[in-house]
Each structure stands twice: as structure tokens, then as C-alpha cells.
């Protein structure tokens, strides 16, 4: 691949916009939040982020919001991520390596089926308290 210029990046974005089949997954936006604290990074959260981007691209889904946050307080099951899909409970998944990330895209985001082996409920109590302050 030759070194891209910003102009090429702009052109590619326009092209993708036209090409990308707008999948009617839901009327509201789905969101994946990846925990990127020291603990998440040490456990490979960067590879997890990468895997989400790659799998969503392969599945031609361009409108999932993928963001990052700091430590979610579940350092023992990192990498942790939160998945928010309208009409489904918000789920915290733990031990999300690139392979699990792919399953989450296919099952949870595309087929509305939770990946039950990796559900870790919600952020730890002290982190929730902190948010309420």
C-alpha cells in the first residue's frame, strides 16, 4: 500500500459512504465502549479495539460507535468492554480477546444474541459510586 495523503483519505471516505450498504440493524445507534486503563492496555485492549474495527469492516457495518474509556474497575477480567444496543440491556463483557470481539460483533451486534460466557454484568460498585458524585 502506498503512503496515503489526506486528500486520498477524504476521497476514500466519500467512496465508502456510497458503497456501504446501510444495514438496517436498528433505528438507534449501537455502541461499543472499550476499557483502556493501565489494566486494559496490559491485558491487550488495543488488540481488542483493532479486532472490533476489523470485524465491523468485514461485516460492512460502518455506523457502530466505537469509543474508549479508562479503567471500568474490573481489572481482573480485562480487557473489558461495554456493549449498548437499543432494546437490549447494557452488557459488560470481560476477557474480550480478539476472538471474543469477533463473536460479540456477529452475535450481539448483528443477531441480538448475547455472548453469555463473557458477561460480567456492570462496572464495579466503587466506579459506579464515582460516576454518581
Amino acid at each position: 500500500m502506498a503512503k496515503m495523503t489526506l486528500q486520498e483519505l477524504r476521497a476514500l471516505r466519500e467512496q465508502k459512504r456510497k458503497e456501504m450498504k446501510k444495514r438496517d440493524l436498528s433505528d438507534k445507534t449501537m455502541q461499543v465502549v472499550i476499557g483502556m486503563g493501565t489494566c486494559g492496555i496490559a491485558a491487550g485492549a488495543k488488540d481488542t479495539l483493532n479486532a472490533f474495527i476489523q470485524e465491523l469492516e468485514e461485516q460492512q457495518v460502518s455506523d457502530v460507535i466505537v469509543t474508549q474509556t479508562g479503567c471500568m474497575g474490573l481489572c481482573y477480567v480485562e480487557p473489558t468492554i461495554e456493549v449498548i444496543v437499543p432494546g437490549m440491556p447494557n452488557i459488560i463483557y470481560g476477557k474480550v480477546d480478539p476472538e471474543v470481539a469477533k463473536n460479540i460483533v456477529r452475535d450481539h451486534l448483528m443477531n441480538k444474541k448475547m455472548v453469555s460466557d463473557h458477561i460480567f454484568d456492570r462496572p464495579a460498585a466503587d466506579i459506579i459510586d464515582q460516576g454518581r458524585k
Binding site: A2, S62, V66
Partner: peptide, 20 residues
Amino acid sequence: ALGDLESSGSLALLRKYITS
């Protein structure tokens, strides 16, 4: 250039750009 830095489509393009 990308319009946003959070949708999966933009992230995939940004990844290509940085890799190149």
C-alpha cells in the same frame, strides 16, 4: 477529513491511513 472519529467506518479508514 473523516467527519468523525468514532463510527466504525471512520475508524477502519483511519486504521488504513495510519498503517500506510
